[in-house]
Design a protein around this nucleic acid. Sequence first.
RNA 1: GCGCCCAUAGCUCAAUUGGAUAGAGCAUUUGGCUACGAACCAAAAGGUUUGGGGUUCGAAUCCCUAUGGGCGCGCCA
Length: 539
Amino acid sequence: MSIKDELRHIIKCSLVKLDINFLESEITIDICKDKNHGDYASNIALVMAKNLHKSPMEIANLIKDNIDSDVVCNVEVAMPGFINFTISPSYLLKTLDKILMMKNDYGRCDIGKNKKINLEFVSANPTGILHIGHGRGAVYGDSLARILNFIGYDVVREYYINDAGNQMNNLGISIKERYKELCGLDCNLPEDGYHGKEIIEIAKKIYSYYKDNKLDCDISFFKKEGLDILLDQIKHDLDTFRVNYEVFTSEQSLYDRGIVDNTLTKLKNSGNCYIEDGALWLKTTAYGDEKDRVLIKNDGNYTYLMPDIAYHIDKYERGFDKMIDVFGADHHGYINRLKGSLSMLGYDTNKLEVKILQMVRLIKDNQELKLSKRTGKTYTLMELIDDVGINAARFFFVAHSIDTQMDFDLDLATSQSNDNPIYYIEYANARISSILKSYKGDLDNLKYSTICDANTYIILNKLCAFEDVVKVAGEKGLPHLIANYVYELASLFHSYYANVKIITDDVEYTKDKIALLTAIKIVINNALNLIGIIPREEM
RNA sequence: GCGCCCAUAGCUCAAUUGGAUAGAGCAUUUGGCUACGAACCAAAAGGUUUGGGGUUCGAAUCCCUAUGGGCGCGCCA
């Protein structure tokens, strides 16, 4: 049980004793910002006041008088009706023991037990290499997956490969034109073709292998070559960034398995399709969309929406309790038509949650650097990693809420990368490692005897809060809470370190300090692991 | 024009999603290394949470409205 669970339990017992009816969800616990009030507070009395026709203060006092627990050492009621709890030192010491015992598993829980979650993220088209914007989605999705795993969910990370649409033809054409260029012919790259450097690289690869023998091949050959090379590159870049997937689903495979045709039949049978101007339309307006959408264009080809509905149905059929899609802000307009289409076929769209990531703006020389597929101007994920390193890049992304429109200043990031808060956290870890190395005693059977100062109490309280932070971060999809948490923990440590000598001649005293530092290090590492960061032991 | 998101210290961002006196870093000013790592610590200063209404015990957070920004509005994906 986490500390908040303990406190909820205490209140629950008190309410039962008082014979007061309540909803479990009504009992909320918050961390006190002002430690003069206590460590945690509940507003339960304020919430219940109206229904019970009593003053919040009266209810709060009743609850307080019926509390009997050694988790807390002090309970106080404050205006206008808060119940404030102070955690007992003995409970905090037990928590310390728990951390030292559980090590890498401290913070784990099983609230997601037997629940399957599908988490789809990045899913960038294989028509170019990953850029900085994809980095944000990659870190968000991967961190969330790690956290959900940690709290007991069965998570499937999935990447949807758009390998069947019009954009693939464009890719084939672009590569072929570059290839022709290498063969000494004219290059007629279309306006809407792909102009990135990587397209030239692919053409070079083909040329170095086949010379000019492939000039007569149609674009399907170039398409296939390009897809294979780019997909490998994408997978490689993600892997380097410590982002991995359980499942890659190909759009083409949905056609091959007949799922797209099946879905189309279902949509037609639902009576929501009609033909207009030679195209087949879907009446998504009947399900909350702003306009109806085309499924089959008047040239006979499917739109992007058609296979995507099929793809989501496939996910539904695979039996997940919940599906999360991570989209960039430029795709937010897509949510209604997708959800509308799915509910049309009777699927519960509450199971599908779409997370929208705000855009990352690149700043260079104090000006926005516009990325463009057309001109091929870009800043790739690998360039970012080369410039600032994996840890700093990941932390930079994950530390911000996804609602924030981030500015990424290239000059700042490359010249003063030490400003990244990750170094502050890594430094805390390195300092602890350094101390533990010079400690000559036993590191295996650590135990803490007494809490002798206020700083220790504050740190233990923070360590104790980890379990709850992890839960909220996972359940609400807010990995940045982990980043905030670990930064605050590092800060508490640095401050403590400056004031307290760890290794002294006093054996018992030193043992206590070493136990505390070991616990801090465990929690720092567990937290960083959840956001895919491997801290250095030495700076 | 319509829709979604956003607006918090000079700058970049928090605020555990409705809790008590809105917090950090950078920049500015000041103090601290013959203690285990100064990539650190301690302190000062900096705010009408864009403006205006509303909801309630209580609002940066929810609702309405004005302004300013991002993104979208294709038989592209």
